[in-house]
């Protein structure tokens, strides 16, 4: 009898050992190692090679200058062509960038809903047409395929996007009636999945303008494709 008990005790101990042993290996998430979690605040001395300020472009409150750019229908377009505008949704976008494409349908919906209320979408492709897939013909093709209800303009000579400070596609600049920049950034907080959007930054900003208030937040960030500058620069 006593012998049996001893055997049980040993088994029990072994069982415990098993658990302790395997438990250590059952880690999920980032592997352990010589790494350390978040900000050791003052320890690092960040060196910034190029800040947003250096990139330049409009800041909140700046007045955007109007432009004359060629639309996919081969007519010339200016902001002043829109009569009775209460604001302007200027969005830098392009043909190929997956993050820009994910927002095409949402831009169409936005224009369909807000153009009548005085806020039209004005899409500008800032990319160098050196790459054929971003050239004028490809833009015409994309606009026709998607039946863009808004103008899709080519930034000929790539002069307008640096003036705005567009660095990625898509990149939105919401202007008010007086062409003052009121909001810069993302359309909403979920590029990949429209049904999981929690905050509609752009629509909230328009709602704020409608109430005569300043949008909050007035600057947001998003992952996007870099604007392709011409190589012969």
């Amino acid at each position: 009898m006593k012998k049996l008990n001893v055997i049980f005790l040993i088994t029990l101990l072994m069982g415990t050992l098993f658990i302790t042993n395997s438990y250590g290996q059952d880690r999920k998430g980032p592997p352990p190692g010589d790494r350390k979690g978040p900000p050791p605040e003052s320890k690092h001395s960040p060196i910034q090679s190029k800040s947003i300020d250096e990139i330049g472009g409009y800041k909140i409150g700046d007045t955007a200058t109007d432009f004359i750019l060629k639309n996919v229908d081969e007519t010339m377009f200016s902001l002043s062509d829109i009569k009775n505008a209460k604001g302007y949704i200027v969005v830098f976008t392009c043909n190929e960038c997956p993050f820009a494409k994910m927002y095409e349908d949402r831009l169409i919906e936005l224009h369909n809903e807000y153009a009548a209320k005085g806020y039209s979408v004005i899409a500008i492709n800032p990319n160098s047409p050196e790459n054929e897939s971003e050239g004028f013909e490809a833009m015409q093709k994309r606009a026709a395929e998607k039946e863009f209800p808004f103008v899709y303009l080519v930034d000929e000579g790539q002069k307008i996007y640096p003036e705005y400070g567009a660095v990625r596609t898509p990149h939105v600049f919401l202007l008010d009636q007086d062409k003052k920049v009121q909001y810069i950034g993302a359309i909403d907080d979920n590029a990949k999945s429209p049904e999981d959007v929690k905050v509609k930054f752009l629509e909230d900003a328009i709602a704020a303008l409608e109430k005569g208030e300043a949008p909050n937040p007035n600057i947001t960030k998003a992952i996007g494709c870099p604007v392709k500058a011409a190589t012969s620069k």
Partner: peptide, 9 residues
């Protein structure tokens, strides 16, 4: 990085 715009790379 507070100065990152979100453009890649």
């Amino acid at each position: 990085d507070p100065n990152w715009s979100g453009a890649l790379p």
